[in-house]
Design a protein around this nucleic acid. Structure first.
Lengths: 205, 205
DNA sequence: TGCAAAACGTCAATGAATGCAAAATTGCAT
DNA sequence: ATGCAATTTTGCATTCATTGACGTTTTGCA
């Protein structure tokens, strides 16, 4: 399958790619709300209707690589070393699927611009949170499978606690306008807090 | 201000209430997607256009009491007893603002039906997650203010970790079709895990 | 080459959301 | 009670995402 994309598939890939690049370029140039689906379709020389056979909605196109990120994460969980502590495993998941650039050069190219875009468009924020939520449910299943010592509730709590801590911390950093480096440190701190628990926080003087 | 709503305000309140009740009734009867804003407006005897001066969007009306829940939560955080452990404080916040019914009888009346509705409509799920995210940022600020021993990152991690664990656990329970009672127990467990940290989870055999 | 499936495009319709200016209501002062 | 000013409500037009139905074109394969 990977060896034989076939003309048909290759063509679809190219169109898909063209739509993504066109969309992100337009979003950057004119803003998300000011860009219509028709315009996006035009950049790839397809009909407006066709756009919707590639993406379910206008906002979907911004998250084109979510699926591959999730797959990588599930893969990492599946490769858990027997006896490896859950905390260690999840640390690796975060590092390699959230921070690592996806294989595609495309993802690398748009990375920071996309982050800014999402942060500035409420509709995209909502979409991202929804996708992330779904991802967490799938990670929960994967974790439950890979760690027989965890019941489903424990797996869900582990995933939710870690991802939740990171997500809110990142948002708080962005809101305050932190540099990426500081934000990265904050993520490490958030991870530690989730792993060590709220009781590990500093006590009142 | 509470003593003198004035005819104008009272009328607005009644219209608002009528819109909410009409909308939720229609959503329950015909489903969310099958209900148009025009129909909702009709149940309250106002023009379609007027709906949008009461709510920013069709999905907004489902979350009519979010604001008051948030306000209660912030209030509770503000009343923190000096020296009270963060974990205890946040436990109370969860109990009293998430589970407790809001003051309004309306919220109580629609409670369970609304939960089912949101779970079944993707657009509402996304909206809920977005609102919840925003709420978490505000709780982070409140917590940071009430607990000087916590820096902003720590406060954000605390809120995100706890809320994240609970949210994912609840979803996992619903997905599996658990009874409300089991789900409630699972929330307690999720809370404990967030507070004690992922390292408190059972180790592999 | 020729057929069946897959993809694309055209057309039309629905419905959310918004801007605008006119019409109706209400609060308040005279 | 009357009238003015502020606030709301409304009707209307418009834009745009999204979807369904259906005919046309391409591509894969026998």
């Amino acid at each position: 399958m990977t060896s034989d994309p076939g003309l048909r598939q290759r063509k679809k890939m190219r169109t898909r790619q063209a739509l993504i690049e066109g969309a992100l370029r337009l979003f950057a140039e004119k803003g998300y709300d000011q860009t219509t689906v028709a315009e996006i379709a035009a950049t790839a020389d397809v009909a407006t209707r066709t756009f919707f056979s590639y993406f379910d909605s206008k906002d979907d196109i911004v998250f084109f690589d979510d699926r591959s990120r999730l797959e990588r994460a599930v893969e990492i969980i599946g490769e858990r070393q027997p006896g490896e502590p859950v905390a260690d495993l999840l640390r690796r998941v975060i590092d390699q699927s959230v921070f690592a650039d996806t294989d595609s050069e495309l993802a690398r190219k748009v990375g920071p611009a996309r982050t800014r875009l999402i942060a500035s468009v409420p509709a995209l924020q909502a979409r991202e949170l929804h996708l992330l939520f779904d991802i967490q449910l799938q990670l929960t299943e994967a974790l439950h499978l890979a760690c027989p010592e965890l019941d489903l509730v424990e797996a869900a709590a582990a995933v939710g606690s870690l991802v939740g801590a990171i997500k809110v911390v990142v948002a708080a950093c962005q809101k305050r306008g932190n540099r990426p480096e500081q934000t990265y440190k904050a993520v490490q701190r958030a991870t530690d807090i989730a792993i060590d628990g709220l009781n590990s926080l500093p006590r009142p003087a």
